[in-house]
Amino acid sequence: MTPSTAAQNARSRKVIAIATVVLMLGGFGYLAYGGIGENIVYFLTPGELVKKGEKAVERPVRLGGQVVDGSVVWNAQNLDLRFKVTDGQGTEVLVHSRGAPPQMFRAGIGVVVEGKYGRDGVFQSDNLMVKHSNEYRAPDAEAMKHPERLNKTLMRESRS
């Protein structure tokens, strides 16, 4: 191999390497900031689901929101669960699910349900997932910070 072709080879390799990196950077940039963000919506909010109307009915879709206080009806006999999900902006969707929910499920917690929105306005869930917030709290955070107070509460409770 003559020195000139070796140099040419090295140069073309460098060009290929730089082109690859630029291409990949562009690709990642597009992924991060481009229109793709619109297409990978993991779940719809109750408001978005209702607004979609006929397009979202009887199609596999994910619905995410907060479980409405006082809306949970759990029938342990036939493992039938009904509750409402809200987007916090006035739209609520009734969800029907079968089987025991995850242990963290309760009124007020975030959920994502996979299933189909029926024509009767009830979302039939095949899969109920709990969306935990980024908060981690001791049972009574205030009491934990003040052991003497915790002690007092315990004493009061044991006395009554």
């Binding site: 991060a32 919506v41 993991y42 969306k131 980024n134 908060e135 981690y136």
Partner: peptide
């Protein structure tokens, strides 16, 4: 280059995974 995407994913998109926690969302003993 995928690392910042992984890190920001919970902010950029709707996810089941929660947002990053911070000392203000996590009790001191945790």
């Amino acid at each position: 280059l995928n690392v910042p995407i992984v890190y920001m994913s919970v902010k950029w998109w709707r996810t089941l995974h929660q947002l990053q926690s911070s000392p203000s969302t996590v009790d001191a003993d945790y």
